[in-house]
Simulated scan of single mutants.
Amino acid sequence: MSLRPDAQAGTQPAPHKRPHLVVPTPEQLAARRLRRRTRLLRPAYWLPFVLLVVVLALAWGLGESRMPYLFAPLGDIAGVLAEDPGYFLGNTLVTLSEALLGLGIGFVAAFVLAVVVSEVAVVRRAVMPVAVVLSVTPLVAIAPLLVVALGFGMGPKVVLTALVCFFPILINVATGLRAVPGPVLQVYRTVAASRLEVLRHLRVPASLPYVFASLRIVFPLSLIGAVVAELSAAGSADGLGSVIQVASSQNRLATVWAAIFVLAALGSLLFWFVTLAERRVLHWHES
């Protein structure tokens, strides 16, 4: 058997050198930030979106010529928005406050219940079937009952929005709390970690991707819930849902579409906000 060259020479093998961590210089960091900012100027970044907008505008013009009773001219819609922006801004703030308040209540209730059902099997077997029944119940049908129970004003709309957001958060958070790798959980059990320590240091961090996945769903969904509540629960003339309802009854098609466009822009803004928060919080996660 032949010996290695270092053994024949009577020398020890050269120790393995660990690669040094390369720390970028301030100039390199500034160059990276500049590249991120200038990517907006690249046609490959903005051209697909612009082409899609052009195609949608052409399709809208075709629909306007064929079905004028359904599609309002884009110029009329822009004119309505420019004529009284304060009117749309005030109603947008009303709908947004209802959506965010209902989302907050639904999130807290669903998160607490998800923790309970993930830790206690008996509660899980009792609660989850009821939650499924709630998720498939047409909530619009109970809007008048909420008005009778809670009176006129914001209360019924907030409760209905919370119910709309409750089930997606419950399912995603409960799944995330139990999506812990078995070997990692075994390590915590080996060191005799308590349930609270496992929940705080392992289950909750592991559930964060699921939490943000549910938030990406329910943030725009909360706007839908608030608008549906405004359309279904009487007692208030404020909010974009009320704007749509009143304008429809008066055959003001441009105002209806203006309110719909404002809702679409607001939902997109909320979705972008959640995505940005997810990137900040989950910078350590592989996703």
Rank of each mutant, 00 (worst) to 15 (best):
M1R: 05
P5E: 10
P5H: 11
Q8D: 06
A9T: 06
A9Y: 04
G10H: 12
T11G: 00
H16E: 15
P26R: 02
A31V: 04
L34Q: 12
L41G: 15
W46F: 14
V55T: 07
L56G: 04
G61L: 09
L62H: 11
P68L: 10
Y69P: 15
F71S: 08
F71G: 09
A72H: 06
I77V: 12
E83A: 13
E83Q: 12
E83D: 14
P85W: 08
G86N: 07
G86A: 08
G90C: 11
N91A: 10
A99S: 04
G104H: 05
V108A: 01
A110F: 01
A114F: 01
R124G: 08
V132R: 03
P138T: 02
P144Y: 02
L146I: 07
L150I: 02
G151V: 05
K157M: 06
V180M: 00
G182E: 12
L185N: 14
Q186H: 12
Y188S: 07
L199T: 01
H201Q: 04
P205A: 04
L208N: 02
P209G: 06
V211H: 14
V211G: 12
S214L: 13
P220A: 05
L223R: 05
G225N: 00
A226S: 13
V228H: 01
S232G: 13
L240F: 11
S242I: 02
S242D: 04
V246E: 05
T255V: 07
I260G: 07
F261D: 11
V262A: 06
L263S: 09
A264V: 11
L269W: 15
L270N: 04
